[in-house]
């Protein structure tokens, strides 16, 4: 191909330049993308940003074939296992309990983050106290209405004030894609801990790792601890 270059006299290696430019921009984007994402996200927000890359957008996950459709009137939260008073709570009963509001980031383990999300619900600890945790209990298992997704926390993690059974987020009742009518929100941990379509809270001695943990995700999912993020677990 030297002949082509010679025949034109001044061939330019555009291909090499395009490749180096894209690889360089890609690497810069990886290293400085967090800042760029922050600025872009603030500019685009969550409205149009719901579709565009760079916006502060949620990614909607479901591990089954669809989103479980649960009418608020039909919703039940079962509290069982090593408790003195097994319970089944309706949405009204949850709403009648002391509510707590949190404004905190939702951070996915793969990197995407939605800053300053408004959450409202009941402290998990209040529910555990109402049911009366028995002495032998050391962990809590959670089930989802989807029948597949599961999660777990140690009892001390579950008793934190920033771990809530949420029934409102983003300023409205929790939508079906976001895990409504009721989901878990574990503020100091990566998003997969915040189980959607929460159906059951079960006190156990030893917890079985949850769905994502069985597929390689860390069981202790502290945002500050697993890797990288330097800020305190409770933001």
């Amino acid at each position: 191909m030297a002949s082509e270059g010679e025949s034109t006299g001044q061939a330019v290696p555009v291909g090499r330049r395009v490749f180096l430019a894209m690889a360089g921009l890609g690497a810069m984007g990886v290293i400085f993308g967090t800042k760029l994402q922050g600025a872009l996200g603030a500019a685009i927000g969550t409205g149009l940003g719901g579709l565009l890359p760079g916006g502060n957008r949620f990614r909607i996950y479901t591990v089954t074939g669809s989103f479980p459709a649960i009418l608020p009137a039909d919703y039940r939260l079962s509290v069982s296992g090593l408790v003195n008073r097994p319970m089944t709570l309706t949405l009204d009963q949850l709403a009648a309990m002391p509510s707590v509001k949190l404004v905190k980031d939702f951070q996915c383990v793969t990197g995407w983050r939605v800053p300053q999300v408004h959450w409202e619900g009941v402290r998990l600890k209040d529910i555990l106290d109402a049911a009366g945790v028995k002495g032998g209990a050391a962990a809590v298992e959670f089930d989802s209405y989807d029948g597949v997704d599961t999660e777990s926390l140690t009892l001390s993690q579950a008793s934190r004030p920033d771990v809530i059974v949420a029934y409102r987020m983003l300023g409205e009742s929790i939508s079906t894609p976001h895990g409504g009518p009721v989901r878990l929100y574990v503020a100091p941990m990566y998003g997969y801990k915040s189980l959607k379509w929460l159906s059951s809270v079960r006190l156990v001695e030893n917890a079985t790792p949850g769905f994502w943990e069985q597929n390689g995700y860390p069981v202790d999912a502290w945002v500050g601890n697993v890797n990288g993020r330097q800020d305190a677990p409770i933001s």
Binding site: G29, V30, G33, T34, P53, W112, N227, G228, R229
Partner: peptide, 13 residues
């Protein structure tokens, strides 16, 4: 294997 900041950047890119 990667710091969280890189993961956010990688998602963005």
């Amino acid at each position: 294997l990667f710091p969280l900041g890189w993961r956010t950047g990688a998602t963005f890119v």
